[in-house]
Amino acid sequence: MRPFQFHTPKTTEEAFEMATSKTAYLAGGTNQVDLMKKHIATPDSVINLKNVSTNTIKTTNDGIRLGAGSTNSEVANHPEILQKYPLLSKAILAGASPQIRNMATTGGNLLQRTRCPYFYDTALPCNKRNPGSGCGALKGNQRMSAIIGYSSKCVAVHPSDFCVALVALDAEVETTQSDGTSKTTTFEDFHRLPGENPEKDTNLPENALITSVFVPNNAFGNNIAYVKIRERDSYAFALISVAAALEIRNGTIKAARLASGGVAHKPWRWKNAENYLKNKSATRKNIEAAAKLASSEAEPLAHNSFKIGLLEGAIITALSQAADNTLETKW
């Protein structure tokens, strides 16, 4: 690691006063410390958010608010989350390891960097790590690369599972800018597509802080599923993941939510498939048609067309599980 000054401010105001253009905020550190070890992140100062970010998880009349400092374990095992928002718990438990989930925070999860191998190998070109150097994955190994929403500058994917569930459940992100003003952003608008500037993962202004993530009430109950396909059974990033949530009344789907990880630069919503399922019965035929609709929107790269089949299958599995209400996890 390069040397850096280490600060532990007591308040948000203090944190903003200490922040410069070469500052890195530190929450759980599970990604940030690794990036600093690999010299991918070389901040002059590191600001520890321990006393700034709250870990409170609070139910309100219209939903639940997760403090930016709440750990993955705290969210996944929270009684209210397990009861009313089981999709969040399932998605979190599908990612990382218990040790990492004890450290990693809600805010940090949103801001983690891609695990594209070209981003991590400082000997190779990567527009995200070193703007203008080119994209190594564009003509290289594309197993972990995107199949939708990419650009000629970057084909990396967002690595989170938690974020896939959050985007599916129409979450909102509350942020505080360095001038002290607060802002609420829909989860879909929080992350961005690579376009010409893949070095920017999100629309968060410089040095702004995530204060909390809000998940509105929903009527999905236990008709949810999270399916993750990866290189091994556990403790690996997704090749494809699918979050599905259905509001079913008298056998008819009143509302559907379908989102994927491992497919794009941001957690991806399959809105056409969601609309297709609305007011239809949850039959195998309709589910297969929705899966076909979503996977036909993807445009795979030269070397990852295998992901189309994976995606279609994962969507069918997720929607079927959600419709069958098979909430019980079989480890």
Binding site: L26, T30, V33, D34, N48, Q99, N102
Partner: peptide, 19 residues
């Protein structure tokens, strides 16, 4: 490198001592 911090298992290789 797993150890317990305040009774919870964490990875000591990704924990800055200063925290």
């Amino acid at each position: 490198c797993t150890v317990h911090v305040n009774g919870k298992r964490v990875l000591s290789c990704l924990t800055l001592a200063a925290t």
